[in-house]
């Protein structure tokens, strides 16, 4: 099966700022497959967000390789990376990072605009994406008037606007109450299952475990454990059983 992301012998040592000299990633090997939800877990400062940034092509590794859908990206010029991100990766941030002066609909339209979709077509597509995340009635609402969960769902709609094969989420439930957090994670799992997108989530939130296919534990910049999520599989099996039962099988 072709990987969505392939990481080999990845090293990242920060060279400037307060983190100068810190070895954030130390020989990481990792494959992420289409249709799976992978949780990246570990203590603060373990290298989760650094790994996410490198996989998202917004941070360059010190050494090692990253392939996005089979394409080696670490050797690409800086000017080629925005297009690569635009065509392959959708981001969801802990702080939502919505544009506060734009409505929910316009926030999604920005991402469509980057892809060259504009005017009526962009408005229609933004409406569809907001409907997908259950927020079609909030289209003209500004972020300040949305709840945390609603903001994150707008961020998901925005991340989906570029039709990315990969969704990278940094602590998407950290700022949300349990119900909102659950809704957001369920939505992300749907995206993986139904649309075959690879979803990587950096999280400390144990409530998300049941929605994961894989859980990768990272510590001191190294992968300590890469396991199939039994809870996630059990939940999936239960869902599948329920669906079969409903069909009378």
């Amino acid at each position: 099966m072709r990987t969505a992301i392939e990481v080999r012998k990845l090293q990242k040592v920060y060279s400037e700022g307060r983190a100068a000299g810190v070895r954030a990633l130390d020989g990481v090997d990792l494959d992420v497959f289409p249709g799976e939800v992978m949780l990246l877990m570990g203590p603060s400062g373990s290298g989760k967000t650094t790994l996410l940034s490198v996989m998202g092509c917004i941070l360059r590794p010190t050494s090692g390789n990253v392939r996005i859908r089979g394409r080696e990206v670490t050797s690409l010029a800086e000017s080629e990376l925005p297009r690569l991100r635009l065509e392959n990766i959708g981001f969801i941030f802990q702080g939502f990072n919505l544009f506060p002066t734009l409505t929910a609909g316009e926030n999604v339209e920005v991402a469509l605009d980057l892809k060259g979709v504009r005017g009526t077509q962009a408005r229609r597509r933004a409406g569809e994406l907001l409907e997908l995340v259950g927020l079609s009635e909030k289209r003209n609402t500004f972020p300040a008037d949305l709840s945390g969960g609603q903001k994150q769902r707008v961020a998901i709609a925005r991340a989906l606007a570029g039709e990315p094969h990969i969704i990278l989420a940094d602590e998407p439930t950290a700022a949300l109450d349990s119900t909102s957090g659950r809704n957001v994670i369920e939505k992300m799992r749907e995206l993986a299952r139904q649309q075959g997108r690879a979803v990587v989530i950096v999280t400390h939130d144990n409530r998300t475990l049941e929605f994961a296919d894989r859980i990768v534990h990272i510590e001191d910049g190294q992968i300590r454990e890469d396991s199939v999520s039994l809870m996630g599989n059990a939940a999936r099996n239960l869902t599948a059983a329920a669906e079969l039962a409903a069909c009378g099988i």
């Binding site: 917004i58 991100r85 635009l86 990766i89 544009f99 920005v110 570029g162």
Partner: peptide, 16 residues
């Protein structure tokens, strides 16, 4: 600035 950073992460070119 953070919004411009978000745009960059989303794939916006410097020209945009």
């Amino acid at each position: 600035l953070r919004e411009f950073g978000t745009l960059k992460a989303m794939g916006a070119s410097n020209r945009y």
